[in-house]
Amino acid sequence: MAKTASPSARKARATGRRSPLASVSLLVIGLLATGGAYAMFTTSATAETSSQVTSMVSQGQKLFAANCASCHGMNAQGSSAAPTLIGVGAASVDFQVGTGRMPAAATGPQIAKKAVQFTDSQIAALAAYVASLGPGPAIPEPQYLTGKGNVATGAELFRVNCAMCHNVAGAGGALTQGKYAPNLHSVSAKHIYEAMLTGPQSMPVFNDLNITPQDKANIISYLTYLNKNPSPGGLSLGDLGPVSEGLFVWIFALGSVVAITVWLTAKSN
């Protein structure tokens, strides 16, 4: 229920201009809906929760044994091919499996994002199983993923902590030995949060004492802002900066200018 509330609010915002009252009333409706749903869910479903969790863990264990154990070991203890998963937490599983990085297809400098191999409920089951093995970062609370934080703070933190690898516009960049920091444009808020929290592959960990959950939410808000507002100047040329600008000027601007000089100096019929 909480999940369905936020996309509809986003849709309402996307339709364009509205009166200042509209946002306030929307906010009230959203809060009421979320809160109400949460209250209903917690009161009526407490009894079922524990049994649901156990069934999810056992389902996750089966999935793990079939899909992950060959590298990570039957008890997720790790092997020479893959690290241990004890204590990595549900957030790590949700990120790795939810972005299709796991199960890994081939070894290379880096395991890349690809088509997701499991359904949402299967991912949740896997995450529950791995979370049951030892304490680790949990899947983030939805309140941090709304994209409604302070974009200015988020932008500043992004420049200090993220831009050196992912580029100021989140376009990605090169690391050593063929590794790279991926483009962030189409990454969901939840996965960005989980990546900061767990530090997948080359990425360092940004624990909650380094970047607080609220600041993580601010960073996500900045990235959401960039996704929602196309570059004010026109096409962004992949946000790659002066290199793509230089290529553009040589190929398109100077190219069309040369074509015009040819026309201009050709004899008319």
Binding site: A163, N167, L240, G241, G246
Partner: peptide, 12 residues
Amino acid sequence: SPISAGTQPDWY
């Protein structure tokens, strides 16, 4: 202190 990946000068 901060920097962006892909820090380049203008083409020339």
